[in-house]
Simulated scan of single mutants.
Amino acid sequence: MQDKVTFEYAIIRLMPKVEREEFFNIGVLLFSKRKKFLDIKYHIDPKKLAAFSCEITLDELTEYLKAWESICKGAPHGGEIGALEVSDRFRWLAASKSTMILCSPTHSGLCHDPTTELEDIFQKYVL
């Protein structure tokens, strides 16, 4: 267990009509301070999207999530948020929002490899 590191994650949810409080999981955001790791993995099922809303396009949502990817990577086009420390970027992305893309409460755990853990959580909660 000595080689394990702590991590935190949040499930990314799509809630097309906030007032209805109906959502489905579209991704995972995972952060490990010790590994200086922050990444996102997402998939939007077009059939689920069509069942939830005909007003939002897959392209629109993909553009929003690409912005989240830029923030995770600390890319220059990630704006002011992308320039923050890794932990601050995670906190900003995982913060409670009243938008159609939001996150679950954060959860924590121990892992050997954050990339593998991200994939495992993604498979379990999104696909």
Rank of each mutant, 00 (worst) to 15 (best):
A83C: 07
P76L: 06
S104Q: 03
T62S: 11
R91K: 09
G74Y: 07
E85V: 07
E63L: 11
S104K: 04
T57F: 12
A83D: 09
L58N: 13
A51Y: 05
A67K: 10
R89M: 04
P105Q: 09
S70D: 11
I81D: 09
C54W: 13
K73G: 13
A83E: 14
M100I: 03
A75Q: 01
H77N: 08
E80Y: 11
A51S: 14
A95D: 14
S70R: 15
K66T: 06
L65T: 02
S53D: 11
C72A: 08
E63W: 10
F90V: 12
C103S: 05
E60Q: 13
S70A: 03
M100Q: 02
F52W: 08
C103E: 02
I56L: 13
K97I: 06
A94R: 00
T57W: 12
K73H: 12
V86Y: 01
V86Q: 05
E55G: 00
S70C: 05
A94T: 00
T57M: 06
F52Q: 10
D59V: 03
I56V: 10
F52V: 03
E55K: 15
G74L: 04
S104P: 07
C72H: 02
P105Y: 01
G79A: 06
C54P: 07
S87E: 12
A95K: 15
L84V: 01
S98N: 13
W92S: 14
D59E: 15
K73C: 00
R91D: 14
L65E: 03
S70K: 09
A94N: 04
S98M: 05
S70H: 03
I71T: 04
A51H: 15
E55Y: 08
E60N: 14
L61M: 12
P105F: 00
L84K: 11
S104D: 01
G82H: 14
G82E: 15
I101M: 05
D88M: 13
E80C: 13
I56F: 11
S98Q: 06
S98C: 00
R91Y: 03
R91L: 02
P76M: 02
T62I: 04
E80M: 11
G79Y: 05
M100E: 02
G79P: 01
I81Q: 04
E85K: 14
T57H: 03
F90W: 10
C72K: 01
K97R: 09
C54F: 15
E63V: 15
F90D: 06
K97M: 09
G74M: 06
W92D: 15
L93R: 07
S104H: 03
Y64L: 02
D59S: 12
D59A: 09
L65D: 00
K66G: 01
K66Q: 02
S87Y: 07
I81S: 07
